[in-house]
């Protein structure tokens, strides 16, 4: 036996991989179809566009993956993004950029900590806890902002988006680094494997001496903190913090995680799947925009593709189970 074998090469890996491979296939089919429909789709410019548009939702989806892997859900990420955006906007009036970002991330993590404790310690349903937190965070965002967007954002903040490193914009680079880090964490560390074990069978994880409490709470903290990071990149681009920002972001994030093959019951899913899920979502939206499809029809298109993708997956599973 070689201990260097990654667990991803294993049975779980095989399941996840085969699913990832199929979803990657779907992504490629979409790309080909869209490039046939629109000559602009496959241009270098547009590819960077797609990656750029993936950053915000992609960051939030990482946190959502952690939470969903434990069998939970975080409906509050959109509102937390809105609130922490306001926190960032206000903090930027008082302190230098890094400290302000730190304050926003801390606020997001703090909200996640509260949700996590309510779920893991008090045993409340994640759906309900984060639904409540969603309402609270949005309401606080309005109150702190005085119901208007904060547009006095220092221009320097946009450096985190537009600085080009090795030919890649900083925000895209950050996204890729975040995914690599999250993947390594979930695959190669005690904490990562414990998150899978907790989602798959909490009883067994506890009986094996794993720290179930810590790793049930941590994902919510990560999710809240990453919501703040995501909105930071968004504000850096538009140089305005809107209390309405992040509206329905949680739905996009959940959709991306689910398209990426994660089970809402926990224990099953992968960070690479989530990345593919994010790309699929963004590509569809981008393609539809290029074709000039009305934004009102985009919801129908995206919703249908999500459902069809999962339906196809289920049919494949049924056939192999029989």
């Amino acid at each position: 036996m070689t201990t260097s074998t990654s667990p991803l090469a294993g049975g779980l890996g095989r399941i996840a991989k085969s699913l990832e491979v199929r979803m990657l296939g779907l992504a490629l089919v979409l790309a080909v179809a869209l490039s046939l429909l629109s000559p602009y789709f496959l241009t270098q410019n547009n590819i960077f566009n797609i990656l750029d548009q993936s950053v915000v939702i992609g960051i939030v989806a990482v946190g959502m993956t952690f939470v969903i892997l434990t069998g939970g859900i975080d409906l509050s990420v959109g509102s937390v993004a809105g609130l922490t955006g306001i926190v960032l906007g206000l903090a930027l009036q008082q302190m230098p950029i890094p400290l302000a970002i730190g304050a926003a991330v801390l606020a997001g993590g703090g909200i996640g900590l509260v949700s996590g404790v309510l779920v893991a310690v008090f045993g409340l349903a994640p759906f309900v806890v984060t639904l409540g937190m969603m309402a609270i965070a949005r309401s606080l965002a309005y109150i702190f902002s005085g119901q208007t967007a904060i547009s006095a954002i220092p221009y320097d903040l946009s450096n985190i988006v537009y600085t080009v490193v090795l030919g890649i914009p900083a925000n895209v680079l950050f996204l890729l680094a975040l995914y690599a880090l999250a993947w390594a964490y979930l695959t190669y560390t005690k904490g990562g494997r414990t998150i899978y074990a907790v989602g798959s069978n909490k009883e067994a994880a506890r009986a094996a001496g794993l720290n179930v409490l810590l790793y049930s709470i941590l994902p919510y903290v990560i999710s809240g903190a990453l919501a703040a990071v995501a909105i930071t990149f968004s504000i850096a681009q538009i140089l305005s913090a809107d209390p309405l920002a992040g509206n329905q972001m949680e739905l996009d994030a959940i959709a991306a995680v689910v398209i990426g093959g994660a089970s809402l019951y926990g224990g099953r899913g992968s960070i690479i799947g989530t990345l593919i899920g994010v790309l699929i979502m963004v590509m569809i939206r981008n393609g539809l925009n290029l074709m000039g499809v009305s934004p009102f029809w985009q919801g129908t298109a995206i919703g249908s593709i999500i459902i069809l993708a999962l339906l196809a997956e289920r049919l494949v599973n049924w056939r192999s189970a029989r």
Binding site: G10, L12, G209
Partner: peptide
């Protein structure tokens, strides 16, 4: 109480080890 279904045989085998393991990795 014992089996973690989404983990491989290897990881199920090493589950109590992970519980006892002090480090950050596996």
């Amino acid at each position: 109480q014992n089996i973690v279904p989404d983990l491989t045989v290897r990881e199920n085998l090493l589950l109590a080890h992970i519980g006892r393991h002090k480090g950050f990795g596996l």
